[in-house]
Amino acid sequence: MIFIVTALHCEAKPIIRHFKLKKDARSTRFDLYSNGEIYLIVCGTGILRCAVATAHILSIIPHKNGASALNTGICGAVSPDIEEGTPLLFHKIIHSETGREYYPDILLKHGLREVALNSFASPVTKEYAGTHAFEFADMEAAGFMEAASMFLPAHAIFCLKVVSDHLEGTRMEPEFVTQLMQKNLEHIEHIVVSSRELPGCRERELLTSSDYRVLELIGERLRLTATMRHQLKETARLYKIRHKNSLEGLEAFLNLPVDSKKEGKIVFERIKQYLIH
């Protein structure tokens, strides 16, 4: 599952089309599109709006380990040598007002240029760039990073932008922005696909429902306390990891006659020995 955040509709358009996303009514605050696996939210311009939208989508859509988030759209480049339409993957995002820095943990392979991005609260110009040290500028990524880092692991957060201008301050036509994004869809798709392949936290559930049933029955028959039941579950989990066996062997203990708590305790110790060795 991946959550995509864009500032503008014209940035989102090719992505919505390509992945066949449909309007999703679960958000009444922002425009949300989805196909059940990919969620795209249009946040509007600005660092704060982007932070709010990112936190919003990650809160209202239930997601498991292995989910990731991508902030994509356009950005400005200071150097005229960087051509319009160049896709960039950011390894460092700086909030220009707070000075706070964010570092996505880029573990997947990609063929993109990796650089640092400065997020500004208002549009910056060429003149401003002449007196301040930065190379690329946008107005959202820092907010996205702040919010996404609260929900997702560092390696599951991506920020990919396409250079649209050189801070000339001229108005940009939405069709032009859509075209730039359309041309770079393959890079967005690469992130969407490869992020799925990054294994999430490997804490899988090992005990099956029938294992749970046996453990519960044992707990009841032996009149185990809550602590002992917890111990039993933990030992059984470790047993499965070590032996890769099912817990069938435990069923034999269910037939032992137990008439008192004391006897239950004795059988409990025997079960523990069985599971430990």
Binding site: D105, H155, L198, C201
Partner: peptide, 15 residues
């Protein structure tokens, strides 16, 4: 700032 980032995956980073 990088080494102690929250929410890192040691095992994934190892590769």
């Amino acid at each position: 700032d990088v080494f102690c980032r929250p929410n890192q995956d040691f095992q994934l980073q190892k590769s």
